[in-house]
Design a protein around this nucleic acid. Sequence first.
DNA 1: TCGGTGACGCGTT
DNA 2: GAACGCGCCACCG
Length: 107
Amino acid sequence: MTKRSGFYEQVWAWVRGIPKGKVVTYGQVATALGTPRAARAVGYAMYSVCDEDIPWHRVINSKGQISLGGQLARPELQRQLLVQEGVQFDHQGRIELKVYQWWPESH
DNA sequence: TCGGTGACGCGTT
DNA sequence: GAACGCGCCACCG
């Protein structure tokens, strides 16, 4: 299966392991995969994702806010999905990373 | 093979 | 604290 050929597969697999009610940053995923500088590639992977099994909405930027801007899905959709899982936003529409950020080694 | 693109991150102003 | 610019890595044509 030529699956490992895609860096995306690794990203999707890692993102799939994010527990409900928690969020992670692009740079964090890149770091977990061994490429802290590949945050952009991670964002690209999210753009390419089309599986509903992947909690792409749990991946946000280091600023704790949603960027997006494409037709794929509006920021309000991601915000709604996160709120539906119990994640709360500030008045500026930002997420408290120190509260909701999840670390696989942080257990 | 090469260039352009993109849901980012960090440093500086 | 916010905004701007450069650099980073991976994928597509």
